[in-house]
Design a binder for these strands. Structure first.
Length: 832
RNA sequence: GCCCGGAUGGCGAAAUUGGCAGACGCAGCGGACUUAAAAUCCGCAGGCCGCAAGGCCGUGGGGGUUCAAGUCCCCCUCCGGGCACCA
């Protein structure tokens, strides 16, 4: 590299060179088998193979790769895998558009994106690659489905489901955002009644909620979102009896202590009792139909709250089981049939909404809760409080709300007209999809035997290759007779195969368990490996999966635990959600035309500069504003590193080995900066993750070394010092710019891969400054700066401050009132 | 409406515990090198006043606590995200 030409930093030369070397040496990035070594599992969310990496991916993977490389250098056994969330609708759309089979399209995209990742120098263990659309993976989806079916965690039922006309399939609740399809932001989701397969995620609702409290390595934001989504609500169900018919209306309430104040019962428009009443009353039916329509429209618009509250009296009455009182039954347009029991008791005295409704329709408003403090003035109604005592409530008068709730629940239970209960907002996970490109559901419909499981030995149920993809309703698989027509495994008679496929979120709910044992043909993964590798130490991805993928994964992990396959209850002990990549103030998107292609960046500035910029431009948890000039700046910086190392590499090599002499002068100054930088970066990797300032710190270090170039040229610094400086600099750079680090490592004459070199340690004694600059303030305003010994006593600092010329000048004619010395920080002179 | 973030130079940002606001980089300006340009290197650079020394102002706005506030407390504005008739 002595020759002039090679002094130029050219990523287009070195990056392909190392890319080829790494490809030829896959063991470099491979995890070791289960050992005594401490393990570190760092995982980035696997991408959907759309065909192109975008900057959000680059950012996500640059963070994960930096961490993985750092942990490798810290001596951990690191698992750092990558895979493909490869089922899903875009492949079918592409098939319609280009007449390419989904499988071909998907696999070609994967091949391309894998090359992009390799070009970026991301250190993945490709031997563990998982591709969810291949039978060796999705057979285990089927296997899990059957195990869950056996445990009653899978069931089939007809119900109201979300239907996206654009996708021509059903969506899970989690995939409906404000009434719109999560994939088609413009498309309103319709409600349809369909027979569907469900996973009983609600069986784990309580546990999923409680687990959040212990997930302190997860962002509070994500935990809050999940808590809201699960929406646990403790309350009481109580049966009111319809006068005349004796029919029961079960209401759900969180405030059974206010039940003596119930002055009406209100039904959802779609409640079964409503339907019965409406059938006998044409004018009521018209009202109810209008309300159903209203709710449907509001639901589709994603704003149920926008409906103006209204109701219709049914003319019927219901009896309160606690006091035998008869109250009118109403139908109201804000009561939802799918929450609680679809019926409520209305207590206008102690609930804002009920108060509003009762006022509108002239229903009775009654006080049944008084303030706990008997001397307090009677508050105006509605009085919404749980810190009161009951009044006008018969035998329960005088009890606190909490005590009354208990007694009332006991009475309901004893009287057989109700019980304490818990209601959740979360619903079971609808997993049926009427699409082709997904995991076939391994069930068979037999006329004689009903639902029959596909026997394990017949797995996988393979997706047929030749299928006509259309936009018409019904699964494309239902039009493949060879697929549909089977013999019943039980009776051997003719039977029909299930033609729905599974939601692709099934694939991503457990893929991270497969990596550690990706080739296992006899089980999803080995239990021993799971015990070693799980939970994931650090999971990294976008916050957009806070509810979808991350709640399904937590559910699935618990299911596997209860199947005896793993011992952990949570998939990941730490979660990091990186910010979005934006440009010109908006998230990058094709429609906004502000997309920056990673390929372009790599071609122009190299992978190192692109990745390092992604880490440098903002802290990883914040949004990042992409500015191409910034990438150019990072590229220039790498060029400076390159020239610096190249210039002194020969001399540094002469100084290989342990530095012995106690450094002084310039050597001390430079080594001090080096050890300070090492300490700072090491600390950041341990949790704070401000990689932007890590890069800045390396830049400062390089500035300092380069600033002494003339003295270095003059040989003022010993070869061993030069060696330590450059060698450590390259090590510090390695997690952020792996190509240039690898090249310079070799240039410095080091043997072996830099990834296997030990992360540098900081010598605290060397890093410590022996003199500090201390600002001197007068009345809190900066007056001067003094230099004192680091360990100077307060008295010395004070004396030095008072002796300072500038300070003296400012103190002229003033009286010193008080002196505050903060060691190593500041001196403040309070004067009058 | 409720819950989380956020607001700092022309721009991206930094300030780990309350202790020199603006590190690092971009853009800009000046200089060196060059026939010239690019590249590179050196330097300047929050605003206002000033030839300068220096002074005053300054972290969305208002108030407060403190010797000292970007940082803590109260109120408000704006931006981003999430939730929202949930009984």
């Amino acid at each position: 590299m002595a020759d002039e030409k090679e002094l130029r930093y050219d990523p287009a030369v070195i990056e392909p060179k190392w890319q080829a070397r790494w490809a030829a040496e896959p063991a470099l990035y491979a995890a070791e088998p289960v050992t005594d070594k401490p393990k570190y599992y760092v995982l980035e969310m696997l991408p959907y193979p759309s065909g192109q990496l975008h900057m959000g991916h680059v950012r996500n993977y640059s963070i994960g790769d930096a961490l993985a490389r750092h942990m490798w250098m810290r001596g951990y056994n690191v698992l750092h895998p990558m895979g493909w969330d490869a089922f899903g609708l875009p492949a079918e759309n592409a098939a319609l558009k280009n007449n390419t089979p989904p499988r071909e399209w998907t696999l070609a995209n994967i091949a391309h994106m894998k090359r992009q990742m390799q070009r970026l120098g991301l250190g993945y263990d490709w031997a563990t690659e998982v591709t969810t659309c291949l039978p060796d993976y999705y057979r285990w989806n089927q296997w899990f489905f059957l195990r869950m079916y056996e445990k009653g965690l899978v069931y089939r039922r007809k119900s109201k489901v979300n239907w996206c006309p654009e996708c021509a399939t059903v969506l899970a609740n989690e995939q409906v955002i404000d009434g719109h399809c999560w994939r088609h932001e413009e498309t309103l989701v319709e409600q349809r009644d369909l027979e569907q397969w469900f996973f009983r995620i609600t069986a784990y609702a309580d546990e999923l909620l409680e687990g959040l409290d212990k997930l302190d390595g997860w962002p509070e934001k994500v935990r809050t979102m999940q808590r809201n989504w699960i929406g646990r609500s403790e309350g009481t169900e109580v049966d009111f009896t319809v006068e005349g018919t004796g029919e029961k209306i079960r209401v759900f309430t969180t405030r059974v202590d206010t039940i003596f104040g119930a002055t009406s019962v209100q039904l959802a428009p779609e409640h079964a009792v409503t339907k019965a009443f409406a059938a006998a009353d044409p004018s009521l039916k018209a009202d109810v139909d209008a309300m159903i329509d209203e709710q449907k429209k509001a639901r589709e618009a994603g704003d149920l709250g926008a409906i103006e509250k209204r109701g219709a009296a049914t003319g019927r009455f219901a009896v309160n089981p606690y006091n035998g009182e008869r109250v009118p039954i109403w139908v109201a347009n804000y009561i939802l049939s799918d929450y609680g029991t679809g019926a409520i008791m209305s207590v206008p005295g102690h609930d804002e909404r009920d108060f509003e409704f009762a006022t509108k329709y002239g229903l009775e408003i009654r006080r049944v809760i008084a303030p706990a403090d008997a001397d307090a003035e009677e508050p105006a109604l509605p009085f919404v409080s749980e810190d009161g005592v009951l009044v006008n409530s018969g035998a329960y008068n005088g009890l606190t709300c909490a005590a009354a709730e208990q007694k009332l629940q006991q009475a309901a239970k004893a009287g057989g007209f109700g019980e304490a209960t818990v209601t959740f907002r979360i619903k079971d996970w609808g997993v049926s999809r009427q699409r082709y490109w997904g995991t076939p559901i391994p069930m068979i419909h037999c006329e004689r035997d009903g639902l029959v499981q596909v026997p394990d030995e017949q797995l996988p149920v393979v997706l047929p290759a030749q299928v006509e993809i259309t936009q018409q309703g019904g699964s494309p698989l239902s039009r493949v007779p060879e697929f549909v027509n089977v013999t019943c495994p039980k009776c051997g008679g003719p039977a029909r195969r299930e033609t729905d496929t599974m939601d692709t979120f099934v694939d991503s709910s457990w893929y991270f368990y497969r990596y550690m044992d990706a080739k296992n043909a006899s089980e999803p993964f080995s239990k021993a490996k799971a015990r070693y590798w799980f939970p994931i130490d650090q999971y990294i991805g976008g916050v957009e999966h806070a509810i979808l993928h991350l709640i399904y994964s937590r559910f699935w992990t618990r299911v596997m635990r209860d199947l005896g396959m793993i011992e952990n209850s949570e998939p990941a002990s730490r979660l990091f959600t990186q910010g979005m990549v934006i440009k010109d103030g908006a998230k990058m998107s094709k429609s906004k035309g502000n997309v920056v292609s990673p390929d372009d960046m790599v071609a122009r500035y190299g992978a190192d500069a692109t990745r390092m910029y992604a880490l440098f431009a903002a802290p990883p948890d914040r949004d990042l504003d992409w500015q191409e000039d910034g990438v150019a700046g990072v590229s220039r910086f790498l060029g400076r590193v390159w020239r610096l190392v190249a210039k002194y590499a020969a001399r540094a090599r002469e100084g290989r080995g342990q530095r012995t002499a106690q450094p002084a002068g310039l050597a001390l100054k430079l080594l001090r900066k080096l050890h300070q930088t090492t300490a700072k970066i090491t600390l950041d990797f341990e949790g704070r993750w401000h990689f932007n300032t890590c890069v800045a710190a390396i830049m400062e270090l390089v500035n300092e070394i380069q600033g002494a170039d003339a003295q270095l040229e003059a040989g003022e610094v010993a070869a061993e010092v030069l060696h330590e400086l450059l060698r450590t600099l390259v090590l510090l750079l390695a997690p952020f710019a792996p190509f240039v680090a690898a090249e310079l490592w070799e240039e410095l004459g080091e043997e072996g891969a830099i990834l296997r070199a030990a992360w540098p340690t900081s010598d605290a004694a060397l890093a410590r400054e022996d003199e500090l600059e201390i600002p001197v303030q007068i009345n809190g305003k900066l007056a001067s700066v003094i230099r004192v010994a680091t360990e100077a006593a307060n008295g010395e600092i004070e004396a030095a401050a008072l002796a300072d010329e500038k300070v003296k000048a400012r103190m002229e004619g003033k009286t010193l009132v008080k002196v505050i010395v903060v060691p190593k920080k500041t001196v403040n002179l309070v004067v009058k």
